[in-house]
Design a protein around this nucleic acid. Structure first.
Lengths: 152, 152
DNA sequence: AGACGATAGATGCAATTGCATCAAGCTTGA
DNA sequence: TCAAGCTTGATGCAATTGCATCTATCGTCT
């Protein structure tokens, strides 16, 4: 059993940095969106997945897998997105319990507007701070902290 | 003006990894604490700062600076900590508006119990996945994403 | 077919967060 | 000195989150 109950100083430092920096960056990005009068990041995450999925859409449980949101969270978020006309809920043929969520034209437009702001935040907060090689290094190292670990 | 509105693919990837991994790790740590019947991470952050501050304690606004919590959040968190007997609120001599927050004996004990679980999570989730050198590299790279950038 | 357990998604209720604002005390400057 | 503005911390209210549970449908096993 190689598990250690007490982490090394390096591990503690890396953890602290990770938690602090990620929170700080996320808040910056959220603030930029809010200032622009746009919806919060969570909406972007969902719209992004749905846009990538295309006309076939996605089932809510697939969104849960992809976004890490809790089930009840997705359920309510989708209700809000539908109320705003950004997505459509379609019944699914071979499963009477389920539904398929498809992004609506207005959803694509909102996503586009959000990306204009969000992308700029990423460029400023991350892209401008580290070189491409360093960014690749960060991705690789963080990927190994994922569960399951990412190879690329 | 060197600002780019559209981030590089490397920046997008690093951002996505950072957001996703930090959320995943934090949820793992939160879950471990909850399973152990202990308070959430936010409590640890505050108790940690107060423990380091020692008998002199800290003013709430100092906690805000150190933890990045919003003011109203700290205000209510401290109310809960006090209600649980983990901290004491003391009037401060030279400023009638303010108060000094001091960690109580029971607060130290709770923090100790939380660290037993939290530290193990850090060791498992981070310490066991990367070498000391790699962890140092992560800290250094993330430090440059901070505002203001960290040198160490 | 019928029963039983698993899966998909919604929802009532309590706790927390976010926003805006407030009250109280401090500081500065005329 | 005292008005105006700033800082510190609290709080009412709305929105969101978390938890537990519920309904409905599906799949499987007998």
């Amino acid at each position: 059993m190689t598990e250690k109950a007490t982490p090394s100083p390096e591990a503690i430092k890396a953890w602290a940095r990770l938690m602090r920096v990620s929170r700080q960056l996320m808040e910056s990005a959220e603030e930029a969106l809010k200032t622009a009068g746009l919806p919060p990041l969570a909406w972007y995450d969902v719209l992004h997945e749905l846009a990538e999925a295309g006309e076939d859409g996605l089932r809510p449980f697939q969104l849960i897998e992809r976004t890490l949101f809790a089930q009840y969270n997705i359920s309510r978020l989708l209700a809000r997105l539908e109320a705003d006309g950004l997505v459509e809920k379609l019944p699914v043929a071979d499963d009477g319990r389920g539904q398929t969520i498809r992004i609506a034209a207005q959803g694509r437009e909102t996503r586009r507007q959000m990306w204009a702001v969000y992308g700029r935040s990423i460029a400023e907060l991350v892209g401008a701070k580290l070189s491409a090689d360093e960014l690749t290094m960060v991705s690789a190292l963080l990927g190994r902290l994922r569960h399951p670990p990412a190879s690329d």
